[in-house]
Design a protein around this nucleic acid. Structure first.
Length: 481
RNA sequence: GGCCCUAUCGUCUAACGGCUAGGACAGCGCCCUUUCACGGCGUAAAUCGGGGUUCGAUUCCCCGUGGGGUCACCA
């Protein structure tokens, strides 16, 4: 029974995908995987005016990066191909003819201006405009140039079950004679998605709450077609970062692939997105893809809207970056021309400090640049005693370091460096002149040229004894000069 | 405006009608550390308002308020 589950994600090619759409796709996909079912990617391109060029490959790239894979769909075919609605017009036409024959559909006889006049009249009387009040007395045959309308039944109260929200209902005003086929020959969403869901055997439909109020349309159309409606599951909205409104492209929602460019890993995106609107009922915060599939449950999907927290995303992204092997980290970090050997050595440092790959790249060019090139030292900085508790720098401290570093083996661990150098710093501390800082600050600055850097022992280990000696000598030279 | 959905810390959320309303992120403090970061420990922070049902409401019901959605030849 579980193996019969079929879900789908059916975006229209109107541009990029934002996290709201991706999350809906994620839940539909998780549900299919959880139940050993199939997941379909269908493209709903029935509005040729709003279509944006190249949307389809962009959507495919987005979902692929994100980590969702589909069993049938636009680019890989399947038993119900094609998965592009504009290539299925004959099918919608056949269903439309069936509806006409059964008396469930009729051609709209009004011109645009006539319809406009009727609508204005109703508005003038402060009445809601209902097309069904203006149905033509005599039905003329449909020539395919007029819009085809659904003859909506009058039902006092629609009620249905929602897998997330339970009992939902709507009054009879929720449904009017809506258009099935537009005058340009393309079906509307209302007809096309239902025909496809029937043909493709979709069992569970996940979608946003903006579809709740049009569900009566869908139910009555299923009934007119003599088909059983699938189960519905309504997803909560994802709200914009600052406002309370639904996240939308208009309000600056980001392209999913922008997150890739900013250095987020898809594991983190999936983890975070799954948790906006769903939770496992436990305290677990980190979920791998497989763990999500195992834990996902529609009954624990939230009913109210939620904000997407990019700060939390940073934390979770850092977690998933740290789970990568050093090789994967380098391969996925897009570090182009960095010195491979130094880069390899720097990875543990990057894993500790960077929350995104972009941050990691910035660090390599910024505070970690000293790993790759000699820093430019500045005499004023060398001797400055700012902030107040800074000890300043003495030639004797640097020379003491020099002696110890020269004795280090060429391949040395951070721990050994620390064991070797700390006694000098501790001795300085006993003298009470600036404490350990009297040694450690000069070392940090000589090696990094910066006031903020990784700890100096790590720097020595990464740079090697020879380079360390060279940099300390450079600092001494500046002090003397 | 009609209809529909919804309401727990700043944010994401947990809590068969029953412990001092729990966790995470962010915040704050302390420790570690001459810096930053990491890490450890700790701390502050919430049930929208009013009725009702009940021995007992975060939980169930009603009203109000706030927020959202929808009323297309868009999906």
């Amino acid at each position: 029974m579980n193996s019969k589950v079929v879900t789908r994600f059916a975006p229209s090619p109107t541009g990029f995908m934002h996290i709201g759409g991706v999350r809906t796709a994620l839940y539909a996909w998780l549900f299919a995987r959880k139940h050993g079912g199939r997941f379909i990617l269908r493209i709903e391109d029935t509005d040729k005016e709003r279509e944006v060029a190249n949307s389809i490959p962009h959507i495919i790239e987005s979902l692929t990066w994100f980590g969702i894979e589909w069993d049938e769909g636009i680019d890989r075919g399947g038993p119900h191909a094609p998965y592009l609605q504009s290539k299925r017009l004959d099918l919608y036409r056949a269903y439309a003819e069936k509806l006409i024959a059964a008396g469930h559909a009729y051609p709209d006889p009004y011109s645009e201006s006539e319809l406009e006049a009727l609508r204005n009249e109703a508005v003038g009387k402060k009445q809601p405009f209902l097309f069904r009040d203006h149905r033509p007395a005599k039905l003329s045959p449909w020539d395919g140039r007029q819009p085809l309308r659904f003859r909506a039944p009058r039902i006092a109260r629609y009620e249905w079950n929602d897998l997330v929200r339970g009992r939902l209902s709507a009054g009879e005003e929720a449904i009017d004679d809506f258009i099935l086929i537009k005058s340009d020959g393309y079906p509307t969403y209302n007809l096309a998605h239902i025909v496809d869901d029937i043909e493709m055997g979709v069992t569970h439909v996940m979608r946003g709450e903006e579809f709740i109020s049009s569900t009566p349309k869908f139910l009555s159309l299923y009934e007119a077609l003599g088909a059983t409606a699938p189960a519905f599951a309504t997803m909560p909205v994802i709200l914009g970062p600052d406002g309370k409104k639904k996240l939308s492209k208009r309000d600056g929602a980001k392209d999913l692939l922008d997150y890739r460019a900013e250095g987020y890993v898809p594991e983190a995106m999936m983890n975070v997105l799954a948790l906006v609107g769903w939770n496992p009922g436990t305290d677990q915060e980190f979920f791998s893809k497989d763990e999500l599939i195992a834990a996902f449950d529609l009954s624990r999907v939230q009913v109210s809207g939620a904000h997407f927290d990019e700060v939390k995303l940073l934390t979770i992204n850092q977690h998933w970056m740290r789970t990568l092997s050093d090789e994967e980290f380098i391969a996925r970090g897009d570090f182009h021309d960095a010195d491979r050997e130094k880069l390899r050595a720097a990875v543990p440092l990057l894993k500790e400090r960077a929350r995104t790959f972009r941050e990691a790249r910035d660090m390599l060019a910024g505070e970690l640049a000293c790993l790759f090139e000699k820093p430019a030292l500045n005499r004023g900085k060398l001797v400055a005693k700012e902030p107040a508790d800074r000890p300043g720098m003495t030639k004797s401290a640097l020379e003491g370091l020099l002696g110890l570093v020269q004795a280090l083996p060429s391949d040395v661990s951070t721990g050994t460096v620390k064991e070797t150098l700390m006694p000098l710093a501790d001795a300085e501390e006993k003298k009470g002149k600036g404490g350990r800082g009297a040694v450690l600050w000069p070392l940090r600055y000589a090696l990094s040229g910066q006031e903020r850097s990784p700890d100096p022992f790590t720097l020595v280990a990464l740079l090697g004894a020879a380079e360390t000696v060279s940099r300390i000598r450079a600092a001494i030279a500046i002090l003397e000069g």
